[in-house]
């Protein structure tokens, strides 16, 4: 199997008279590390919702691994190998950290050694000491790690990380970047939506920039950094940070 792992064709989403997204075309290749940047409200999260299936686009198609998944519900996309994390962590509160990881394993790749697999992934993100703790008791950094661990415990083909590093310190950003880079080394394609520029620049092999629902640039990180349009809409705004 070759060809892109994920393809977005002419996707459009309107909320009332307000066009939140599109039309957008996007291609993600196998094993690629794609960064998506753009100011708040530029349609990044709407695009992810269309990709993961929590939102059905009004126009256009989404293809996963060559299959049209536009009308496929999110849980079936997850079973096909599409994982995502949420911008605001959504832990399964009331369950332990270990159980949080068992939920996707149960549904997507059940096995007798499920708990061992879950523990192994918790180790890889440094959460093994928290395995038996309730998910609601975790710190912000730990919640972000849990969010990632839950997305990647089922060994997806694509991981969409929605602002996985927001609110983290520099050292913690390095932690998460290391996890994602290691993951990408195993052949998983990663889409990183991020505001923290140096992290996206360091991580991505290609970057797409969004502005008012459209892609305004799609190139290698160094080209993007030099693009005057990107600088105008994005870096101009980012200098405050």
């Amino acid at each position: 199997m070759s060809g892109p792992i994920l393809e977005v064709r002419g996707v459009e989403q309107r909320f009332g008279p307000f066009r939140a997204l599109g039309p957008v075309d996007l291609v993600l290749h196998r094993g690629e590390r794609l960064g998506i940047i753009g100011p708040n409200g530029s349609g990044k999260t709407t695009l992810i919702n269309c990709i993961s299936g929590t939102l059905r686009p009004q126009e256009g198609r989404v293809l996963f691994d060559g299959v049209d998944v536009t009308d496929v519900p999110p849980h079936r996309r997850a079973r096909m190998g599409l994982s995502r994390s949420f911008q605001i962590p959504k832990p399964f509160t009331g369950m332990t950290v270990l159980e949080n990881l068992l939920v996707p394993i149960d549904q997507i790749s059940p096995s007798a050694d499920a708990e061992d697999r879950a523990i192994a992934v918790l180790e890889s993100v440094g959460l093994q000491r928290r395995a038996a703790h309730e998910a609601g008791d975790l710190s912000q950094l730990e919640l972000r790690k849990l969010e990632l661990a839950r997305a990647l415990v089922v060994e997806p083909k694509v991981l969409v990380a929605d602002e996985a590093m927001a609110g983290l310190s520099e050292g913690e950003i390095d932690d998460v970047l290391a996890i994602l880079t290691r993951l990408s080394g195993t052949g998983i394609a990663v889409i990183m939506i991020e505001h923290i520029m140096h992290a996206v620049m360091r991580f991505s092999t290609r970057i797409v920039c969004f502005e008012t629902g459209r892609t305004i640039a799609d190139a290698a990180p160094d080209v993007i950094a030099a693009d005057p349009l990107v600088q105008k809409v994005y870096f101009g705004e980012q200098t405050r940070h």
Partner: peptide
């Protein structure tokens, strides 16, 4: 697995759905 799925969707239906739970 059913109970874990139910408890997961109680905490967050969207997150459960995206984790493969047919909510």
């Amino acid at each position: 697995a059913m109970g874990r799925g139910l408890r997961a969707l109680k905490a967050s239906e969207i997150a459960a759905e995206c984790a493969g739970v047919p909510t």
